[in-house]
Write a protein that binds this DNA or RNA. Structure first.
Lengths: 133, 133
DNA sequence: ATACGGTCTCCAGCAACTGGAAAGTCAATG
DNA sequence: CATTGACTTTCCAGTTGCTGGAGACCGTAT
């Protein structure tokens, strides 16, 4: 599997897959005779996982840590569990914020009549939003 | 309200609030005699909104567009509604992906015994993940 | 009056890509 | 078998969105 196929399969741009190979986040399986990077199923899974993690604001280093669990079978599973739990609670917080943003926008769309009057309530709706972190 | 208070209220670093002022994303209400930026309730709401939008991968320009709706009362509300709807469906897609990432991790934590054996199923769980964008 | 924390501007650096150039690879077609 | 065109390689520069630090000014409190 060449880089282009891996990119398509993982939903990442080729450039990014190459970049991840360069920084050692997701290394290819190996190289072909002519120097082409080879990717297999496992690598594509890691790329998908990385894409998801990155898209929710986990840094490359945090993503590397999670992917590290994938690789390092000598790590104790209690350790693995602890790290995964930490990330899980971060994810849950993120989900709440995402819900808040969604609801805010949905409410505003709802309240807006959708005609051509310039006093769309979307404008005023923002002011009352939740201010907590 | 000085920049520090606005930062605290919005959950953003002072540096970032200043940066947003510099690029005109969220401008302060005005300046004090001595040049201090002034922020009010409306500006803080915009900062919160901007923080949320940014934290879910909306670019500064997309965020600016959404905040622009807030400002530009001369824009037709149909236009406003259309843009907001587009963003809403993006948000819903993001929520699904976030749920998938969460479930993946939660399942793995569940399956992991949490003892010190090195063959924690978290490792194997990754390989079977969803590969769609 | 002096200490302190907050604020100002400016400038440099970082993270994570992203785009473009120049050259090599590979499969298919004339 | 030559050549076309898509794909890949490396390298390097540019972009986005902050982030840290220096040096100076502001504002309140002892």
């Amino acid at each position: 599997m060449n880089i282009g196929d891996a990119a398509r399969a993982s939903g990442l741009p080729v450039k990014t897959v190459r970049y991840y190979a360069d920084i050692g986040l997701v290394r290819p399986n190996g190289r072909s005779e002519s120097g082409y990077r080879n990717y297999g199923r496992a690598e594509v899974s890691k790329l998908v996982f990385a894409r998801r993690a990155r898209s929710f604001g986990f840094s490359v280093e945090q993503t590397r840590e999670l992917l590290g669990l994938y690789e390092d079978r000598s790590r104790s599973s209690a350790d693995v569990k602890r790290i995964a739990r930490e990330r899980l609670s971060e994810l849950e917080a993120k989900m709440q914020e995402l819900q808040a943003l969604h609801d805010e926008l949905a409410h505003l769309v709802d309240a807006c009549r959708g005609d051509h009057r310039p006093d769309c309530p979307i404008i005023d709706g923002f002011a009352g939003g939740d201010v907590s972190r």
